[in-house]
């Protein structure tokens, strides 16, 4: 067992001990349960054609915000909690390099993000099967699951960068949440204004926002995969609106750029600066 493995195990335990992460994870599952409850109450004439694909609703719903917020909550405490608790000293005076510390902490948080995505996916597929019978095109999950994790990464990484940059848990959580909602709201307003005014430049500008790739990526991959199934346009309600026929590669590029930039900033700050002591 290497230093990175020890740290991954520790990080998983640490994050799971955090109430706000548990509450958000519970919120993801409650949202899913609520959605399926509503769907089962709808007349079969409405849900009928959708029944074999209803797993998509539960799979996509968290990807338009909840997964990003949960990920940034996890990311924004990864390093800051250690400084605030005074345990950064504990780890960085063991025989481990800063690279191993960084890798272990980042991978530990990421493992939790992945397990949350996998859990709610299994939950939505399971509950769909139970309530609506056998489900089709589950093969799409082979690409949709990695896309979903990739969509969570930018805000996990932004949380990480602020966590290491500011070394204050609450501050980094608030700021990364502001980045998410600020970007989301700006993008929504810009889209509305661009629709009315036909301002292409404004529309183009939204492509550089961190939510642009993150929020659209999963739905774009899934709804593209379902394009040959004969489902009517807008079959998935507001989730369908996210698929704007944009290139998956561009969405991935946006998500990858924000993830890489934030990860590099966090790494540089950790590598080049002193280990600060616990705030007294």
């Amino acid at each position: 067992m290497g230093a990175v493995d020890v740290l991954i195990g520790y990080e998983l335990r640490r994050v799971m001990a955090k109430k706000r992460v548990l509450i958000l994870t519970a919120a993801v599952f409650l949202t899913e349960a609520g959605l399926y409850f509503v769907l089962t109450r709808m007349p079969p004439s409405l849900t009928g054609p959708l029944s074999p694909y209803v797993w998509v609703v539960g799979f996509l719903a968290p990807t338009i915000g909840l997964v990003q917020v949960t990920s940034l909550m996890i990311g924004s405490t990864v390093f800051s909690d250690e400084y605030e608790a005074g345990t950064a000293d504990f780890w960085l005076t063991r025989p481990i390099s800063r690279s191993e510390y960084y890798a272990g902490k980042v991978l530990g948080g990421l493992a939790l993000v992945c397990s949350i995505v996998l859990s709610y996916t299994a939950f939505s597929v399971g509950i769909s099967w139970f309530a609506f019978g056998s489900q089709s095109r589950l093969d799409l999950l082979l690409t949709a699951l990695p896309a979903s994790i990739a969509a969570a990464l930018p805000f996990y990484a932004i949380g990480l960068a602020l966590s290491e940059g500011l070394r204050r848990g609450m501050l980094s959580t608030v700021l990364s949440t502001l980045v998410f909602f600020g970007s989301y709201i700006f993008e929504s307003y810009a889209n509305v204004i661009a629709t009315f005014t036909g301002d292409r430049a404004l529309l183009e500008l939204t492509r550089y926002l961190p939510t642009w790739g993150s929020v659209r990526l999963t739905s774009e991959v899934v709804l593209r995969g379902l394009s040959g199934t004969g489902l009517p346009a807008g079959a998935f309600g507001p989730l369908s609106g996210l698929s704007g026929g944009v290139s998956v590669e561009l969405l991935l590029l946006n998500a990858a750029a924000y993830t890489a930039l934030a990860m590099v900033l966090a790494w540089l700050r950790l590598r080049l600066s002193d280990v600060t002591r616990r705030a007294q």
């Binding site: 608790a85 005074g86 345990t87 000293d89 504990f90 616990r278």
Partner: peptide, 8 residues
Amino acid sequence: PELPNFPA
């Protein structure tokens, strides 16, 4: 350390 802290 002077003020030891361990993961609680």
